[in-house]
Structures are given as C-alpha cells and as structure tokens.
Design a protein around this nucleic acid. Structure first.
Length: 498
RNA sequence: GGUCGGGUGGCCGAGCGGUUAGGCAGAGGUCUGCAAAACCUUGUACGGCGGUUCGAAUCCGCUCCCGACCUCCA
C-alpha cells in the first residue's frame, strides 16, 4: 500500500500513517448537535472528512467510520450557571418532544450531507442510545478516582488527574499550571464544581428537564464530552486510529475526551488526531447574530446579501477542495464565481478525455512520461496529508494535456494506449470516488429535452447554411433567454444550461 | 489579557531554503457569418525592517495587521 502521511494534532507534526491493525482503520468524527439547521461550517468539516474517508477507502483500507449524532447533553453555557440542554431548550420553546426536535434536524442534516454527496458513516450512534455505556464509563472513572459526586452530579477531577501525571492539555496545547492557576483565580463560592477546570460527566436534572434518565447518582443526563468517549470506545475500542473534528473542538471537548478515556481505560483514545479548520465568510467567522452568515440553502438559491447568485452544491464542494482542510477557507462571492468556472473546466476535461482513445502500443515518449508522472504526483500530493488543492492542480495540468490531445496541439500517437487508459482511470477515480464530485450536467435531462434541442440545433444549422442569420440568431437569442446556451464548435453545435 | 495559527500577484489558494503551483479575472491569439463558448499562449507575488546563507516567500529576531481558541460551537 502507498505510504500515507498525516498531520497529527497530538504531535503537531506530519507523521507516516501506520494503522494499528494492518489494512484496517477505525475513524471517529464528532458529529453535529441536532438542535437547529446544519451550519455551513459543519458542512465543510464533514466534507473534509468525507474526502479523507473516501481516500482511505480508495487506498484499499477497510474503514469503520463512526460519526455520532449528539441528541442530549450539549449545554448552552455552563452547568453551574444554569446552562440548559440545547435540545431540551429547543423542544421547550417549540413545544415539541425532544425526539421530534432531534428527528427534524437529524433528517435535515442527512439531507444536506447527501446534497453535498458525502458518504454516510459506517455507524452513526446517538448519545441517547448509549446512556448505559456512559453510566458505565462514569463509574469506571469514579472507581479510578478521577471523579467526584456533588449533589447528584458527577464531575471530572482535573487537579487529581494532573497530579497523577496525566497529560491534561497535551492535545490542545494548554499549560497545566495555567489551567490550575486560572482555576484558583476564577473559583467563586457559588460554584458546585471544586475547580472551574473540572467538567461534568453526569448532571442531575429537575422535573423541568424533558430528557432524564436514572443513574446510580441521580435522575439526570450525561455530560456532552462523555458521549464521544463512550461511543468511540464501544465501536472502535479504547484505542483506535483516527479521531477527527473541527479545530474549535480541540479544547475543551477533545481534551476532555482524552482525559475521560485515560481516566476510565488508562488509554489515550486515538493514535492520530485530525482537525479541520474553520470556514470564514468575507474574512470573518460566520455568526448569525451580526449577520455575517450564509446557510447552505441560501448558498444554493443565492438569496443572501453576500451572494450575487446561487451555486450548485458540487461547485461548493469543489470550492472546498481548493483549500487544504487544515487552512481556514474564506467564502466570498468572487471565490465561488471562480470556483464555478474551474469546476466546469475540470468536468469538461473528463468528457473530453472520455472521447479520446489511444491506439499506440509502441515505446513511451516524453509526453507519455509527463502524463504518467503527473498521475503519480496526484497520488503523492493526496497522500501528503490529503493535499486536495495540490492534487487538484495536477489534475488541471492533466486537463491541459487532455485538451491538447483533443485539439491536436499534442499528438495522440505519442501516447501509449495503456497510458490513456491509466489516465482515464485516475482522472475519474479522483473526480468521483475520492473528491466525491458529481457530474451534474449529465443528470436530469430527459430524452425529450435532448431530442428537442437536437431538432432546434438542426433547424438552426439549416438556417445558417442558407445564410439566414436572422433565424439563426433568433433561435440562439431565445434559447439564451431560457438560460440555454448554444456552443458553436468545429464539430458542430452543442448546448448546455447556464 | 493568555494560547495558537496566519499575512503570497486584481480575487481565491498551494508551496515553506535554489524549481511553472493551480483556478478565476486581465492581455494576446486560434476557431467563427457575427457573437458567445471552448481551446492555446502569457504578464504581475510573497505585510514592513533587520539578520543567517553562495542563495529566503520559505530559517531567526523585531514590528505592524488579521483570525481562531480560552465560554456553546465543525
């Protein structure tokens, strides 16, 4: 298998990827909390991991991809300052059952994932379906002495954990002394926790809370950080290959996951931690409150002050591919406009390539070697921490070759038939299997429309050969008003939707 | 305030010690009844000031901006 390098947040270095078990990979990604419509930033994160997942599969690994759905335990604000469960709050405000809220937004989330052509994970566990596992894990942490009970709630004891030499702060780069110091400074009398750096594992709930379960400590609900630990352990074991999520989850969520796993199982959950960076809008973080925000829906329809038009989901996906997953990506109308054209060029390249066929079985020429080496580079770039922008650049260089072969600037006779086949295989593998793009132009057009268009094109051709420019231009202009564009080429006229 | 990341040509965005990134826009050209589209070719760059080096966008120091996290966040 081709060597793969990944940037590990834990070591802050690019490392050679070595699975714990030959040929198999356990991948856990923190999923969404389903209390409102999917955020566009979520879409970038899950699309990034979708591409990672797809590439691992393409390399031949058997991947168990676990991505949870958080349907309980995610609080707004902190427990001790009256933080309320996000799902529970939404249910109360909308007068719905919590599970109605969960179902509604989980459905919406799945639809959006499908619109972006993201593959579903192998397992999509929900927090509410794993209350028993979470209670078990809390008990283990208590048994190991890293948690304490206060008024029916259970808290993780960070000072004790640190005092025993455990690496709290390693993943997120926090300095332990600072965390403890900060804790002492901020400690106020009314806090239920012994220490502000402690976090809730189990939260006692009163009758107003809609989602409550019995536990050895109280009727309540689990803390947010715990679910991921419990579910990743259940489905991937206490130590697995890759844990992913957005970089904003590094602290405290992922740091606490590490602590919980160490506290319960004495093992750090993942060998490699991968973090995706944020999506910005016009250079700033998206935020609903100050209006700097675009929903996926608005992006597709163009109904937003930030956009001049709507964009196809595949254009958006292509746009995301143009940046590395660890870099912030700035969404602007100009950038999307550029991405739209680039995406079309890439797809056109695919169609052009499809129409080429090699017949040369002779020796490899310089051009031949150039193409083979570009193919190889595409794989190398992708294997270098999933560098999609670089791999994409190689593909565009191949487009130039493909167009040259089609246009006659390059000689098809110089390229071995075998190379053309390999090029076709690689090109389509990257476009569709790895990058997960879809060829929208070939979808949804019925035979009737195709037939009618061909008839119109034929009639116009007749008019043109009679030098009846009025008729020819009238056809062209009318179709143009219907957003149908005619393209007069050397080999006849083709059409497409604008 | 603390921690971390970043400032690359008109825009987006790779690269991170010597090589053309790539896409879009611009310019020139091919094709064409005209136009559009498509295709080909092509210019422009590394926030500022110092330093290390034969050589720096890439390393070091200072400085100025920007962003993220530190509290729910993908």
């Amino acid at each position: 298998m081709r060597p793969l390098y990944v940037y590990n947040s834990l070591s802050r270095q690019r490392e050679l990827f070595e699975p714990l078990e030959e040929g198999h990979i356990g991948l856990y990604v923190c999923g969404p909390t389903v209390y409102s419509d999917v955020h566009l930033g979520n879409c970038r994160t899950f699309t990034s991991f979708d591409i990672i997942y797809r590439y691992l599969l393409h390399l031949g690994y058997k991947v168990r991809y676990v991505r949870n759905i958080t349907d309980v335990g995610h609080l707004e604000g902190d427990v001790d300052v009256g933080g309320e469960d996000k799902i529970s709050k939404k249910a109360r405000l909308d007068k719905l059952e919590p599970m109605e809220v969960v179902q509604k937004y989980a459905n919406g989330f799945h639809e959006m994932m499908s619109v972006f052509n993201n593959k579903p994970p192998s397992i999509e566990p929900r927090a509410t379906g794993h209350i028993i596992e979470q209670i078990d894990m809390i008990q283990k942490i208590l048994d190991n002495g890293y948690a304490y009970i206060k008024n029916g709630s259970v808290y993780f004891d960070t000072p004790k954990f640190i005092a025993d030499g455990n690496p709290y702060g390693k993943l997120s780069g926090r300095v332990v002394e600072d965390l403890l110091q900060e804790s002492r400074d901020n400690l106020k009398g009314q806090d239920e926790k012994n220490n502000p750096s402690d976090f809730a594992l189990w939260i006692q709930a009163d009758e107003r809370h809609l989602m409550r379960w019995p536990s050895p400590w109280s009727v309540g609900f689990p803390g947010w950080h715990l679910e991921c630990s419990a579910m990743s352990t259940k489905y991937l074991g206490p130590h697995f290959d890759i844990h992913g999520g957005g970089t904003d989850l590094k602290f405290p969520h992922h740091e606490n996951e590490c602590a919980q796993n160490l506290g319960a199982c004495k093992e750090s959950p993942a060998k490699y931690w991968l973090h995706t960076n944020m999506l910005l809008l016009n250079g700033k973080k998206m935020s609903k409150s100050d209006g700097n925000s675009v929903t996926p829906g608005q992006l597709f329809t163009g109904e937003s002050d930030h956009l001049t038009k709507g964009y196809d989901p595949m254009v958006v996906r292509f746009f995301m591919l143009q940046a590395h997953y660890r870099s912030t990506l700035d969404l602007t109308d100009d950038a999307l406009l550029a991405a739209e054209k680039g995406y079309r060029r890439l797809m056109e390249g695919y169609h052009t390539l499809d129409s080429l066929s090699g017949s040369n079985t002779g020796n490899a020429s310089a051009l031949d070697q150039e193409i083979v080496s570009l193919i190889e580079s595409t794989y190398e770039d992708m294997s270098d921490d999933f560098n999609t922008p670089k791999a994409l650049a190689r593909l565009f260089e191949l487009v130039t070759k493909i167009n040259g072969l089609k246009g006659g600037q390059l000689k098809l006779a110089d390229v071995q038939a075998e190379t053309i086949d390999k090029l076709k295989e690689t090109y389509s593998a990257f476009l569709f299997d790895i990058f997960g793009l879809k060829d929208e132009s070939s979808e949804g057009d019925s035979n009737v429309v195709d037939g009618l268009m061909q008839l119109i094109i034929d009639l116009r051709k007749e008019a043109r050969s009679n030098k009846d420019w009025n008729t020819a231009d009238k056809i062209r202009d009318t179709l143009s008003e219907l957003s149908l564009q005619l393209k007069d080429g050397k080999d006849g006229t083709t059409w497409s939707k604008i």
